[in-house]
Design a protein around this nucleic acid. Structure first.
Lengths: 107, 107
DNA sequence: TCATTCCTTGGCCAATTTGCCAAACGGCCC
DNA sequence: GGGCCGTTTGGCAAATTGGCCAAGGAATGA
């Protein structure tokens, strides 16, 4: 029964994946892969309102993808699971394949 | 924008990831990794209305994750990019880490 | 204490997503 | 043609998301 994967497990996975499914959050993940960053820095990089970035970060944090650490007035975020980046390699494969067949995803 | 990646590229990636970000679609991907399946079979596995499954499949297809092939009356779907599955390994890492800190994602 | 800086939260609105039902489409066989 | 089966599409309601603005902490320094 629980032999393999339950619906609950798929839901858990989906929550993690969903947390990544936004351009700004992907940008944030990419940036945090380089080094930790405070919210203010990320806001400049992303280019939207700081409240919006803060909400994106809380989505990522809630999904277990990033951690935060308060040092003084600043809150520094960093990636919690480095392998997230391999992930992107695969997504690129999809996009490359899609490009061959000129699907609309490639945008 | 800081790096060599444009917003457009992040949007393309997000579209692919977003297409995966649903429990039923993850289940479908997992199943298609075993072997190709027609819509009717997938409907039994997923357990929702066939029209709902069909829409999930069109999301996956549009993202370049699956292909379909009509043979007679049936439409068979299969994975287009096998590495999608490695992807899950990483998601599991996230969940495992999250479990350690008992975050809510694990649900 | 007060002001400043950094960040988070609440409120609101527009846009998107998900599910079902019902209807349409497309092969196939009689 | 007519009927059946497998699949897709349209339409609708409920729920979720993403963005901004404004207000609410929390740490620091004057």
């Amino acid at each position: 029964m629980t032999g393999n994967k339950t619906r609950t497990q798929y839901e858990a996975r989906a929550r993690v994946i969903k947390a990544m499914a936004h351009p700004s959050r992907l940008l944030i993940i990419d940036e945090l892969n380089r080094r930790e960053r405070c919210v203010h820095e990320l806001t400049e990089i992303v280019g939207t309102d700081i409240s919006t970035v803060s909400k994106h970060l809380s989505v990522l944090k809630n999904a277990g993808i990033v951690t935060d650490e308060k040092r003084g007035v600043m809150v520094y975020y960093r990636l919690r699971v480095p392998c997230i980046l391999n992930f992107f390699g695969c997504v690129e494969s999809v996009l490359k394949q899609a490009a061959k067949d000129s699907l609309s995803v490639v945008g």
